[in-house]
Structures are given as structure tokens and as C-alpha cells.
Design a protein around this nucleic acid. Structure first.
Lengths: 196, 196
DNA sequence: CGGTCTCTTGACGGAGTTCAAAGCTAGTGG
DNA sequence: CCACTAGCTTTGAACTCCGTCAAGAGACCG
């Protein structure tokens, strides 16, 4: 039981719900600690997405890899976020998405059967994940409004405010993909902005 | 107790979790039946979003009304869907969104304090809403991929497949707003498509 | 019948894409 | 330690999709 690795998750959970010692113990049992290197792939299209990942530090990306070879990044998942292809995970269907480390990253991951067991045996985790998904939905709403209302330039400026720690580490083409524009155009945008 | 009005909701819930008679009874108590007419506004920007609405039949829209007078529609909520500005509802902050009936609509609505009470007293509803939000997140992911990958024309064709019942009833400008394009351009698109 | 709202159509402009070529890095192997 | 490759970024020119503005045509409603 490597409790100190799990403390980051326990801290995160107890921001939303209270945990007793048995529940904390259970967290340590069912969440598996893994260290992944920059570029490592944690979920492949065609396979069932086996885990929900909680990011302790570092950053993952969740993306769709289209037939024409282009990637479309849905989300960057920096520390304290959850990463998974939920549709594949919960329905146990083959995933269409990929999850990959953007930099060296430490995570805690949980398999579906353990997840189901956890929620069944400890109702407090039903509450916790209800709140987590609820918050994720709110965040998604906000992002959808942003893409409807803002120009590529404004979205890039927002991105820099929201993910300053990523600008240094993530390749430009990934940021372009996340923003829904081409790398070429983002390169031009960035030049324009710097020149001011 | 107008049980027959609530049966639609109970049927929906029992697709995901089991309910005993006490829990069904409770549903009838805390969800209030309302009939709204086409165009009626159910949540105003500046006010706290008071309810989560379950659509029995008809259709609502959830949208952001920008300063320049333009509407940006996040979602249409046809029957069996839930409508709310969750961020405002859960945090009890003033909403930036509007919820409005697109056609005559029957709903069941629940206030936050009753929602909290329901979840506290009957754990089964924690499970239910965890599943609902989880599914909503999956649907959002799918929509985000679509906006990243497809052209306006393809998104319109998809929309017609997904919401055939809306094409007749919803004004073109609302569909354009949902797709993230101007009414003028959608009008042209539609012409092009018909001509083939 | 006049007014308001939605939809259509046209001409023009601009944001963002495509394709191609060249310059940069960074990793790899000899 | 250098040379080589492969992927990332930059830049240019042409092109397309989609937005803007303006005007007219229908539809609905008092």
C-alpha cells in the first residue's frame, strides 16, 4: 500500500465528500499507481478503454485519430483531472479515442470492475463521481460556448491563460488541433501576437 | 399526486436503476408538472437557474444570449432529456444562459433544495444522476469531435438525422445558431442540398 | 392593411485552409 | 562527436468556406 502516492487523490476527493479510514484504505487498494513517459499511449482505438486515470502530475491528452491521419484533441488533462474514454469504459465497447502522455506523467488508474465494486460498496463514491461528472459537464458547456462565440485568435489567447504550463511543453500542432485550426494558421497567429 | 404525469420520468429512471414504491412516491412529490407554450422563457440570464427540467414531450433550447444580441444555442432538449444551466443551479450563481420552449412542451421540474434532499435521503438517485451526467458527458464528447472534424454542411446533414422532428418546427436561425453558422449561410447550404 | 420577423439572394470581404518548400530541432546510429 | 534522418515549425501564394451588409420576398398578426 503506497499511501503517499494516493494522498493526492484522497485530497482531491475530500474537497467534495467526506471519507472515513476504511474508504481511504479502499482507494489505495483499487487505484493503481503508474508512471508514464512522454509519448506513451495508454488507450488505443479498437481496444476497450480499460481505465479511468486520475492525473497526479504531468499531463495527458484525449484525442480522436481520424482516418486521414489527422488528430483531433478533445482535452488536455493536467494534474487533478480525470482522463478516460467514458463511452468505451462504461459500455465496454471498443474505443475510437486515444489517450497519450504529453509529458512525463504520474497517474492513478482504476479498472471498470473495481470501479463498479467501489461504487456499489461505498455510496460516498457515487456522490463523488456524480459531482465530478456534473462539474465536467459544466466545464464542457463553457468550452462549447467558447467555440461558438470566439475567433481562433481569441481561443488561443484563452488557452494560454488556462494552460500556461502547457505552452512550453506541448507541440504547436497539438494546440492547433485542440483549438480546431491548422498548425500553419496557429503559427501565423502566434507571430502576429508576438509582434505587438 | 398526478402519478400519470410522472410515469414518463419513472419509466426513464427505471431504465437505469430500480425504484421501490416509496421512491416512486417521492418522485411524484418533488417533481412539479408544468406545461409551457412555444416561446416561453423558463430561465433568465442574471437570475439563478431554479430548476432542472425533465422534458416529457416537446422541446426546449439552452442558449447563451451574447451582448451583441446574438444567440448561441448549446443544446436542443427534446423529450426524455434534461435541461438546466447546471453551473448556475448547483452553485446558485446568477445564470448567463437562457432556457426557452421551442414548441409547446410538458416538463417535470425540481428545485435545488428538493434535489439535494432527494439525493441525501435516497442513494439510488445519486446513482441515477451519476449515470445521467456520465451519459451526457459522452454525448458532449461526441458533439465536440463533430465540431472539430466536420464542415458546416456535414454538421447540418448530421443534425437532420439526429433531430428530424425539429426540422419542421424550429426556425432556421436557431438551427444555424446551434451549428455555429449564420442563418444566411445555412439558407444557402440548404438550397445546395435540395438541388441535388 | 401596415409592421415585424424570418428566410432568401447577391456581391463582397476576411478568416482560416491547402499545398509546397525550406529552415529547425532533436534523436539516432556509426 | 558528427552526419543523417524525421518530425516540427515557418513562410508564401492561391484558394474556399463562411461571414457581413444590404435589399427584397414571404409569412404572420393585430
Amino acid at each position: 500500500m503506497v499511501r503517499h502516492k494516493h494522498q493526492g487523490l484522497i485530497d482531491n476527493i475530500t474537497r467534495y465528500v467526506d471519507l472515513n479510514d476504511i474508504e481511504k484504505e479502499e482507494i489505495c487498494k483499487v487505484f493503481q499507481y503508474v508512471k508514464v513517459n512522454n509519448g506513451e499511449i495508454m488507450s488505443h482505438p479498437g481496444n476497450i478503454c480499460k481505465y479511468q486515470h486520475f492525473v497526479l502530475n504531468g499531463c495527458l491528452k484525449l484525442f480522436y485519430s481520424a482516418i486521414d491521419g489527422r488528430d483531433h484533441i478533445l482535452h488536455f488533462l493536467p494534474e487533478q483531472w480525470w482522463a478516460s474514454d467514458l463511452y468505451s469504459y462504461f459500455n465496454q465497447y471498443p474505443s475510437e479515442m486515444m489517450i497519450q502522455a504529453v509529458i512525463d506523467t504520474e497517474i492513478l488508474q482504476i479498472e471498470k470492475k473495481n470501479f463498479d465494486k467501489l461504487l456499489k460498496e461505498f455510496p460516498v463514491f457515487e456522490s463523488f463521481f456524480r459531482i465530478i461528472y456534473q462539474n465536467a459537464l459544466c466545464a464542457q458547456h463553457k468550452k462549447t460556448i467558447e467555440t461558438l462565440m470566439l475567433s481562433a485568435r481569441e481561443r488561443y489567447l484563452n488557452f494560454m491563460e488556462s494552460f500556461p504550463m502547457l505552452i512550453q511543453h506541448v507541440p504547436l500542432k497539438d494546440i492547433a488541433s485542440y483549438l480546431g485550426i491548422t498548425p500553419e494558421y496557429l503559427s501565423r497567429l502566434r507571430n502576429q501576437i508576438v509582434k505587438k
